[in-house]
Structure formats: C-alpha cells, structure tokens
Amino acid sequence: MKRTVSLGSRSVPMAVARTQLEPVLVRRLLIAVALLFLGLFILLPLGIVFASAFRLGAGAYLNAFLDPDTLSAIRLTLLTAAIAVPLNMIFGIAASWAIAKFQFLGKSLLITLIDLPFSVSPVVSGLVYVLVFGLQGLLGPWLADREIKIIFAMPGIVLATIFVTFPFVARELIPLMQSQGNDEEEAALTLGASGWQTFWRVTLPNMKWGLLYGVILCNARAMGEFGAVSVVSGHIRGLTNTMPLHIEILYNEYQYVAAFAVASLLALLALVTLAARSLVEWKSKQHLADVRLTHKEALEI
C-alpha cells in the first residue's frame, strides 16, 4: 500500500516527503519567526499609520484635508506625477525597443547607466540639480539673468522626480521584451505591416501588462519621493510642498493626526500598487500560458 501525504496542493509519496520537509516542530518554529519578523517590520508600521490617522475619529481625519496647504500639496504631487510618469514611460518604451530588439556594442554598459539613478542616494540626486540650476550652479547666473527659476520651484521638483523614477518602466520592459524575442514582429513585417503597425498591433499588446506594472510602480515612487524633492523644493508652504514634504512639516509641528491622515493616502497608494503587482503577475502568467497554448496548437496543425 502506498501512503501519501499532502504537500501544498500536490500529493507526494511519503518517502520523498520526508526528505523534503523538516520535522513539524522546526517547520512551525521557522514559520513563527518569519511571521514575527514580517509582523514587526511590515504589518505594525502599516497598521500604525491608519491607527494614528483615525485616533481622534473620522471627523478629525477628514478635517485634515480641509487645510488649503494640504490640498495644494496634493495638487502639486498629482501634477508632478502627471508630468514625470508619461515622460519616463516614453523613455522606457524607446529604451526597451532599442535594447531588447537589437544587438549592438555597449549594450550592458547602457543597461547599467539606465540603472544608475537606483544606486544614487536621493539626497545626492537632488544636490546634482542644485549644482546645475541653483544660484551657485553651472547654469545659475545665466538662468538668474533671464529670471527663470528651476530650483526652489516646480521645474526642479519635476526634474528630481524624473531622475529618481527614471529606470522603473525600462527595467520592467527590457527583460520582458528580451524573453519574447523578435519572431512575432519579424512575421508581421514580412506579411507587409509597417513599423508602426507592428509596434501597435504586435509589440504593445505583448508588453501591456509589464508596461502597466512599470507605470504603476513609477507613479508610486513619483508621488512618494522625499529625499531628492526635499533638497530642491525649498519647502514653501502652499507652493512647493509635495505630499511627502507636507507630512514632514505637519509632523514637526506636532499635528500628528493631520500628518498621519496625509500619510494614510500615500499608504493606500502603496497598497494599491502592491495589489496591482499581484494582479499583473497573475495576468501575465495567464497571457504566457495562452501564448504557449496557441503555439502548441499551431504546431499540432
């Protein structure tokens, strides 16, 4: 008689299962330690944001959003993301097309350079723009003569945001497009489609889930960036304060409920981003399975 033991969803013969699983006690202990660690560093920090925001009830929570400075911070954050994200999306699509579809010299150097903003400290990213456009910067005197203000004004905030979110879309798309190869595009071109038709009808549908996730991630970071924006913004209330910066001001003024109320919006955005990630992962797996199935059917015919 063959005894089996369930391991997740599968059934495995007992002899194999014993070599793969630790004793029950060890297993439970490992799970407990992992849960404790994640609870301490993920669940509690997340929970206290909402607990503190609603500490004085829903009225105080909603009151926080009546402050005109808070509203202008929300508006500036939305506007900044609305400029930075589409620009980085266009760049991401162009970069992934060039890198994934063609072979050329210096490709890995280019990929490394695109990743560069990830490894630079946010504070240094902000400083870089101060040294170019600030009054003491390389272009400072020239800009001052023409009364163009970039640092301590909105253009600086947008530039710093673009810098820190620069790699997100490209990084999602490059590996995805590399794994898909050129076959479908080459087939479309041989059948007489133009370059643009090929891109819109073949490439874009294939990469849409990766693109969507890259854009969502880029947006989350664009709305939440603190360090780089803090250096270039000048912290002028109602004018150059984004949501993350406004949280700092409210917190330092001991307006805890208001600070956590604004923070709760950004925490919600983070949760939506994570949910979207799970959804996109699931969808792209499905898409991949569909594609494999049609390929198999085609082969069988």
Partner: peptide, 13 residues
Amino acid sequence: SLVDLPFALPTSV
C-alpha cells in the same frame, strides 16, 4: 505581496 511594501511606501511615511 506585502514583502514589497518598503519599495512602495514613501520613505517619509
């Protein structure tokens, strides 16, 4: 999916 929270949560939050 919550493991990625530190990537998605703004640093000031």
